[in-house]
Design a protein around this nucleic acid. Structure first.
Lengths: 120, 120
DNA sequence: CAACTATATCGTTATTCGACGATATACGAT
DNA sequence: ATCGTATATCGTCGAATAACGATATAGTTG
């Protein structure tokens, strides 16, 4: 159906650096309100077991589990199994590339605005 | 899990704060390597006309235009029309909520790894 | 052992995304 | 007026995402 990719000799290769891909993957993992909520929750409390997250997020258990899986796959959170629970906690260091990317973007203004997000 | 009460009055409202939604929207807009590349490009040069971006990104013109549209919709870039060109530039301030979110996440004692982008 | 709890996974469905080529638009230059 | 350039939009396709209920898994407790 589609005409054959003539892309043989020309340099139509998307110029995606591995760095770009890594940063985009982190941003993508954070690109859903429920996942932002989960991360915020883990920041407020130190650790959370999954069922508390399910309750607070307000989505179906299976849906929440999927969001947790995405965050885990990106390395942003870790889940320590404590059968039958799973104890989730933040692993903020993996966000460094994204964080530094953003910090280079913003015209180095005041950094002292670091108020913690309001507790839920 | 206790049988969840049927979604009658309360209970199942996804607890998404407007703040969470805003942060997630920004992250989502950055959640693609091509868009990270565009933003990086606009950071390196000060402004770019679209055709240069198309060339550097290496995707079809229509695809690149779509990525530009997404970034524009999120407010991350602006496009000033200079017919027949459009001159794009960064508007990094709108990223503040996401940036601050990340900065509260990352333990502030972890500032050692501050190498700028591009060192690969 | 049986029941309960917490979580992950499966199957499904509807929606969105990402990519492309083709086409439309709008201006400057010839 | 026609051509060329730069950009946006349309239509389409396949893939990915988000959501859910149902079910499977695995440990704890009665």
């Amino acid at each position: 159906m589609a005409t054959q990719p003539i892309r043989s000799e020309e340099t139509k290769s998307p110029t995606e650096t591995p760095e770009d891909i890594a940063i985009a993957a982190l941003a993508k993992a954070l690109g859903h309100p429920a996942r932002i909520g989960i991360v915020s929750m883990l920041l407020a409390r130190q650790t959370c077991i999954g069922c508390d997250i399910v309750e607070e997020i307000g989505l179906a258990q299976s849906t929440t589990s999927e969001h947790l899986r995405i965050l885990k796959a990106a390395g942003i959170i870790t889940g320590e199994i404590e059968r039958p629970r799973v104890c989730y906690s933040l692993n903020p260091l993996v966000l460094e590339p994204l964080r530094q990317f953003l910090n280079t973007l913003v015209p180095a203004t005041t950094e002292k605005n670091t108020k913690p997000r309001g507790a839920n």
